[in-house]
Design a protein around this nucleic acid. Sequence first.
RNA 1: CGGGGUGUAGCUCAGCUUGGUAGAGCGCCUGCUUUGGGAGCAGGAAGUCGUAGGUUCAAAUCCUGCCACCCCGACCA
Length: 463
Amino acid sequence: MRWLQALIPTTKEDPVQAQVLSHKLMLRGGMIHQLASGVYSGLPLGTRVLHKISAVIREEMDGMGGQEVILPILQPLQLWQQSGRVGQYGPLLFRMQDRKEAAFCLGATHEEVVACLLRDCLRSYRQLPLLVYQIQTKFRDEIRPRFGLMRGREFLMKDGYSFCLDPQQTREIYQRVRATYERIFARCGLKVVVVEADSGDMGGSSSHEFQVPAQAGEDVLIHCTACGCAVNQEVLGELVPGDVNQQQQQTECPRCHQAAVTRQRGIEVGHIFDLGTKYSDAAGAVVQDGQGKQVPLHMASYGIGVGRVAAAIMEQNGAEGRMHWPVSVAPFHVALIAVGHTDRVRQAADDLYVALQREGVQVLYDDRPERLGVKFKDADLVGCPLRVCVGERGLQQGVIELQEGGEDSSQETVPLQSAVTHIAGRVRTKQAKRVLTHFRFVHSLGSFALGIGGKSGAAVQSR
RNA sequence: CGGGGUGUAGCUCAGCUUGGUAGAGCGCCUGCUUUGGGAGCAGGAAGUCGUAGGUUCAAAUCCUGCCACCCCGACCA
């Protein structure tokens, strides 16, 4: 993308509305634009990041046998009445009526909808375990939207739902999704901790949150080095005394009562729930098992806040006026900067821009007639993993300059002739590192869960 | 929903106390000079002062209602 004509409205100053780092960076970097409280437009850069994160999620979910679907955003309110969630969840729902004055709401989550879907469309227990997911905008009339994409009233979420024959099968899938989630976040360059959580209005027996430790986090995480428990403070039903902002301070563990508790703030980027049969019962979602008996489907649900992941990455990898994206989710691989305005520089930069793209490298080419300082400051904000400068000074020696993202990375020179292969190679290496760390293979859910290939039906029956 | 705060140009703000009909910096447009970390000079475009009403000869300024946004609490991906 050529910067001159791109919609990237960077700003020199922090917008007043933003308090936390990720929000400031997103606004200053021209990634998002606020329309109303908790409602944002995604500008080209922000949209690209959300797409990249979504792509990682899709790869991993598909890789473990998940099937992507698109569930309706427009939902009959009646569904929520049947599941009994209008009560607690009610105020969070955006409601509306159709022309016949029938009550509808916008999808805040899809347990009800997907339970109905499976009730009608599941043909045989042989299809189980089944995992469907979608990546879609969710609507919640939050009491207090804040911090940009961290808590919006309209936000992009990946929600997944598994259906099993029994609790045991659900536990297996649950554990596998948990492992998949850890891979997803690792590929996004995030350090996460998994904590026990409160399942809240969602219902069900057990739930875990994926928390990114960060000052800007809205949750407080408790970790006990003695008993090993890691929980969200809200689970304990009591406040652990002391100052959250003093990480080193150790207090008594509410579980094992040893003074070995550390606490930190966290951003909840994912949450998984073992739901039992709550929604299946409400929807009448049953299946005939191997003995011909009607049994309710056992359900679990799995969420990831896509925008929140982006915000969390920025909290972890950003600084004032500066971002550094991991290649996997960066808006562009390379920021290409034309230094100076001579014909020779322009020609060389133009050529490099075209050649790199031909090699599959995603390039943000700053071709604006701006001064260098302006281009560098903006490049700092956008935070591409690699920065390439083409300038008169280098061209005289037949080289361009290459720099890794990040604050104090050193600069190296690369001969112009080998620049394309060198840069493309560097991008591939950075990507490969992640792929190798997270090696995986595609297989069906059933065969994995049962530890054998093929005859999943028979195996379920023998259980 | 309770408590606090803010609404004036695309952005950050001054002007309001003491009413007299709107300003600065940044950004944007034109020209010249600059050009290796947010340039200089000259010229220019841009605002129903959140909104509705009231007081007044006269309201950005005083009064009342409403709305929006931000911050602190409950909520969540």
